[in-house]
Design a protein around this nucleic acid. Structure first.
Lengths: 218, 218
DNA sequence: GAAACTTCTTGAACACGTTCAAAACCCGAC
DNA sequence: GTCGGGTTTTGAACGTGTTCAAGAAGTTTC
């Protein structure tokens, strides 16, 4: 059985995540979490050094759900476009309950000092997990992506996903229709764009894009 | 002569912006601003509804400086690549004094509810001014950009600039060398990429990219 | 010049995230 | 059982952004 300590930790985290979903990030005060969980404020801080760390908890959970849902969604889908499309839609599905608070979440995550920042050292593991989702998109695809792109493509797609998430945060259309539309348009376009890589003129430019992207990544 | 009211407003804004630059966003508390300016906290709030609105003030000023510096830097430069490059470097120059705290500002600006958010209604004027800088980049270029791109290109370049700014925030390299390198690599690549638009296969994909980008922008 | 009205200024007060010294609890050693 | 030391829990207190009722200063009206 879980130790008392672990029990309290989970209780606080669960209450916090539920409140985030139900009433949003700002309205979910540390005092409210503590009171709802039946512990003192200081006790919540004993387990989570900051409110941000509770967001980190959410981040990890959403990530895991995305991985599971995406793996299932791409099953049997061969073409890159379809695999990418399914993966992005899966991401949106998983994030949907938090849309109202997505903005606060992004504002928190974007600070380089934040542990939640997707580029920070603390979230290397989470980023790796997220990258793996897109590596799976590329590796399982047939026809396969152009060879010279195969290593960089997952990272570029992941970056694109970050962009989509940003777009999604600002998307106030009903049921996030615009973001869905963006995905549906983007996925086949990326696949078609990649096939252009065979044209010599394009290939040269692409080489330079890749080498720039590599040199700039430290 | 400036009215007393306008004088107080300017005083508060000037003190705030100087403190932002000198000690950073978080350390610049509203109490500190008020005390340094010799007014009460409530008085500062009479002129600026929130701390964010003081950031907005900074945003506007940086913008204006960028416009001036960019206009000067592109003078006599004919090719698109050079004009873009000069404009982006000018932006970095203007932002440099705030780099240490750029992250805090971005975190503030990215919240959809924030008046500083570049996509929000409140900052339409500022965004328009910023867009104009990139419209000038495109319009003054010879050889001219492909006709079908001419309307959308400024917005796309502006979006790219937002991306560069984001990169810059995370750039811890000495003198922001990596961001400078990114700009130097990006500018000619974009120009060369555009010239590919004449290849039929590429042109078709490009058409679809443009139509998607238009349809998704509400 | 007094009265009425608007603009400007004040500082105490509120709720928030966060800290921390102290208390309460737990558990093995004797 | 009780002592000792670690772990867990508490709640008051701090500094923050922000609000607001009250008053001061300035302006218009008669």
């Amino acid at each position: 059985m879980a130790s008392k300590s672990e029990q309290t930790r989970r209780l606080v985290a669960d209450v916090a995540l539920r409140m985030f979903r139900d009433i949003g990030f700002e309205k979910t005060t540390m005092r409210a979490i503590a009171s709802e969980a039946g512990v003192s404020v200081g006790n919540a801080y004993y387990y989570f050094a900051s409110k941000d760390e509770l967001v980190q908890e959410l981040y990890v959970q959403v990530q895991a759900e995305h991985a599971a849902k995406a793996a299932q969604a791409v099953e049997g889908v061969k073409d890159l476009s379809g695999r990418l499309r399914a993966t992005l839609h899966a991401g949106l599905d998983v994030m949907e309950p938090y849309h109202r608070f997505g903005a606060e979440f992004i504002a928190t995550a974007i600070r380089p000092t934040s542990a939640v920042n997707p580029f920070s050292g603390e979230s290397t593991a989470a980023r790796e997990a997220s990258l793996a989702i897109f590596r799976n998109v590329v590796e399982g695809a047939s026809p396969a992506a152009p060879k010279k792109l195969r290593t960089d493509l997952p990272e570029l797609l992941w970056l694109g996903y970050m962009g989509v998430a940003l777009f999604w945060v600002y998307d106030t259309s009903e049921d996030r229709r615009r973001t869905r539309k963006l995905i549906d348009g983007m996925a086949p376009l990326i696949a078609r764009g990649l096939s252009l890589a065979r044209i010599p003129g394009v290939s040269k430019v692409l080489d330079d894009v890749l080498s720039l992207s590599r040199s700039v990544r430290e």
